[in-house]
Amino acid sequence: MIVKGRTHLYGDNIDTDRIIPGKYTKTLDMSDLANHVLEDLDPEFRTKVKQGDILVAGDNFGCGSSREQAPLALQAAGISAVVAQSFARIFFRNAINIGLPVIEAPDHTIADGDDIEIDFSEGNITNASRQEQYQGTQMPDVMINILAADGLVNFLKENGKYELS
């Protein structure tokens, strides 16, 4: 699976309260989430983001709450993938479960507005704007299979149970 897009860069320790504040999480309407995504961190994000863009961050992206509304809000706003130097555990798992591709690349030096291409099967990232490549951390097979099914809902619908490989 290959995802290509333009990046929006943020820093370290972006917590789930800043991705989507708790006061907006009680909804099943994804456009409610999209309307408030990242608003306390970057009030301009909503107007800047275009369908297919890629979010890039530093360490510990998505720390804090277990709210799945965080990756859902990013997905609903048009974000097609997230790259970070590292992720908080629950966020990473939630993103894969809802079919939002995420990749950990500890050494990336991606800047805001770069055009990048992520090859999820190979686990690497090509930065066309700076002619650079970064290696991503290998995901366990169980996660690769869930992502390949486009999320845990489809995976369990098709398989009926968890499988390790």
Binding site: S66, R93, N94, P140, V142, G151, L152, V153, G160, Y162
Partner: peptide, 20 residues
Amino acid sequence: TGVGSTDLAGTMLTGKTWLK
């Protein structure tokens, strides 16, 4: 441990989960 909603749904369905 804390999980997201979809993981929880998976456990409500199967009584199991996967973990590292």
